[in-house]
Design a protein around this nucleic acid. Sequence first.
RNA 1: AGCGGGAUGGGAUAGCCAGGAGAUUCCGGCGGGCUCAUAACCCGCAGACCGGUGGUUCAAAUCCACCUCCCGCUACCA
Length: 694
Amino acid sequence: MSNDDFPTDRPAVVTCGLPYANGDLHIGHLRGYIGADAFDRALETLGQETAYVCGSDMHGTPVAVNAEQEGVDPEAFALEWHRQYEETFPKFNVEFDNYGHTHDETNTELTQEIVRELDDQGYIYEKEIQVAYDPDADQYLPDRYVEGTCPYCGEKARGDECDEGCQRHLEPGEVEDPTSTITGNPAEYRERTHKFFEVSEFADFLTDFLDDLEGTSNARNQPRQWIEDGLQDWCITRDMDWGIDYPAADGEAESDLVLYVWVDAPVEYISSTKQYSERVGTDGYDWEQVWKDEGDVVHFIGRDIIQHHTIFWPAMLEGAGYNKPRGIAATGFITINGKGLSTSRNRAIWAKEYLEEGFHPDLLRYYLMTTGGLQQDVDFSWDAFQETVNGELVGTVGNFWYRSLLFAYRNYEGTPETDVSAEVHERIQDALADVRESVNDYSLRGVGQAAVQLAQFGNEYIQRHEPWKLTDDEPERARQVIRDCVQIAKAVGVLLEPIAPDKAQRLWAQLGEEGSVADARLEDALEAPPRTFDEPGELFEKIEDDRVAELNEKLDERVAAAAETESDDTDADETGDMTATDELEPLADERISFEDFQELDVRVGRIEAAEGIEGADDLARLEVDIGFETRQVVAGIKQLHDLEELPGEKCILLANMEPAELFGVESNGMILAAGEEADLLTTHGDAAVGEKVQ
RNA sequence: AGCGGGAUGGGAUAGCCAGGAGAUUCCGGCGGGCUCAUAACCCGCAGACCGGUGGUUCAAAUCCACCUCCCGCUACCA
């Protein structure tokens, strides 16, 4: 595929990563949907034929598990979220040409068709594997329903991934000593026939594919390592009820397997395009042309799902005879006030919350799109948000729009009747070129900046010529200056539309333009606005300081409140939901003998020194006086205690613990502490340092 | 520790892929201007040895090697 510049004479399709129908949306999600939306709008402005499609991701174990917990069936559960998403997107001016979901008929059929095709092409084979099975719950245990020991490194691992050790992706059946996460009981392995997709056959193809891939560099570079390390064939079926049935071949008995969620999820990109095509007719947009013949496919995704989109997905497309993506833009994460966004700690700006605060969506769009590069992590703070809005949108763009149009309205009742000057014409053309270049670099930041810098030029231009001084003595020159300014204002509107569609539309209307600015092309930025228009209004409002203070306070309070209730929910981040598990660890069944206890040499100690260990988040190096000697001990309490306050504190130390090395620091004993918060054990009275605890 | 990203004037950020004039823009500081405009806008000044060391080159913020530090995810929790 040749990568000639946008706009091409082929249809394009832009997608964003499917929202997983499992929880509320926050600005981290929004960044991707807004980015893809802005990119799609920018392509249209360049004159590219496009479709922007997406859908909700309905399948997979987390949906099944959470639905079960709420006592509803997975479909109803996922559909509820799906409806919420559908309602939310337009509120951020994210306008999909089609928004479907992975459980609908189109996707079910198309997924099965593609899998059948892969099968026909010989890329799918069957293999007997050992699948974990929970005899008590009488069910198989796919993916995260099971945990055990990693066969490669011996660390504790989840069913699908060695998350604590070597990070390796694990195939079903690989985990050793499996236990059921449902009942906590040991699981047994049963022989099951599963389907495998021969990803390993595609190594050469994928290497070439990555060479040509546009978008962000992380999407190109990260998977290379994977390919070099050797690709594993991919088990694409699961023992579950919730999902798309594995398609039965002719004459074969219906399979009771379901396709792995990552098989049917990306197919939704095609399905959603197909639905769009069916709605507008193939004359309006032909999905088969884009996906099977000639088209430009661009995916916007989060950087956490690069592998799926650069390995599995293109291999599937290649195997089934579809077009491969031209560009993949993998966006960075969002941080809040410099710290990682955490849904469990409620450190997030929720989509709903932003809207409830009454802020215009275009402000957030502009902020998210222009604050950093697409690939970069972007920090969000209300302070920075205010600064950007007040400085660039209110001060530069809004002010220029308002002063130009107001001056034009008062003196000429609209656009002065004369031609745009050569200087301004040229300056606008430069801006158009910037936008063209930015889009081809996948730089939404560049698009936004081209618009704002043009407005900045406008402010400078009007200032330089001071038309307010010219109206009386040199009316012709004043007329010229304002004519130029009105044109710049219009151009800024056209250029800003991808980022701030609603604000651009309002400007469009103020200029007396017919129709939608979304339909405007770059060249329209140079067309004269209507001769007359009405008195303009202010399009952007300043955000006041006390408002920001209030918002900061709210956020802080909320994070603090969440921290209090959090206490034990260790894995709340897993699903992004607050599934607090405040159960206590069950009491041990087995009793030990007094002799066993006597083997523990537990002593009273006094902490002499405490310091954090570099590179470790939680570990601290302690020096503990236990009478006979001072021991160096490593303890996981760094974040839970103010280390400076620890020296002098008494503690209880297991003295005959075998030494271990953590982060290169020897630990010679074990400090006793209670619970997740590592509440430090100490003595009630005044026991002397070194005394034995018994 | 594994993977990824980063280090550029006081703060934030661009430029790096395709090496070459005074290193971008925003905020802040200082001084001035304007009064059409949302106390907005415009101009000027101060402020950066582009994380460190070495290398390639006529030329390096940009390419290569090594190092230090930071952030995120995953981990470490004796």
